[in-house]
Amino acid sequence: MAYDKFEILKSTAVPLPIENVDTDQIIPARFLKATERTGFGDNLFRDWRYNSDNTPKEQFVFNNPIYKGKILVGGRNFGSGSSREHAAWAVYDYGFRCVVSSFFADIFRGNCLNIGVLPVQVSAEFLDKIFKAIESNPETELEIDLPKQTITILASGEQESFEINSYKKDNMINGFDDIDYLTKMKNEITSFAETRPF
């Protein structure tokens, strides 16, 4: 088992209604110097969260204690840019288990799934509803039901379903990852390798 099992997550959410949030904002390159996977949460959105003298920027949503929870809700094209898995680690390490957006960059989405953070893609309209619901009441809870593939705004009951392929879904529910799968295929892979011309 590679990470915690994910079935149903009920939580308040942190809104970040900005488009094209790139991986350099999620975790700036200067924090990629570690040789271990821990401690990245402190530097999640570092330059949006803190001034250069390390005092918190009050207007940034992470520094406003009324917004909290295990779900991060971001604007369209979330996670564009680099392949650094550190971006997904930082999201996880900060305490998020799920990121909601109307569109994800490919590599970021894949990285999230590989480490146990569920990317939930909703329609632009539904994303708007979520932002509005949180804006009018920061205590708004969302429920992500992975087995049923639904996301619900609990106060209003508004719901949408989301897509995930059944292989990844099983992995998330059971806490398995691709490495568990591939390790079992070793013989098949070794014979395949012999057929490669170079």
């Binding site: 590599i107 590989n114 480490i115 990852d177 691709d178 490495i179 591939l182 390790t183 295929m185």
Partner: peptide, 17 residues
Amino acid sequence: GIGTSEVEMVLSSQCIM
């Protein structure tokens, strides 16, 4: 480009998914 989990996959199995 791939993430670090995938780097581990390639090291241990020469494959990614």
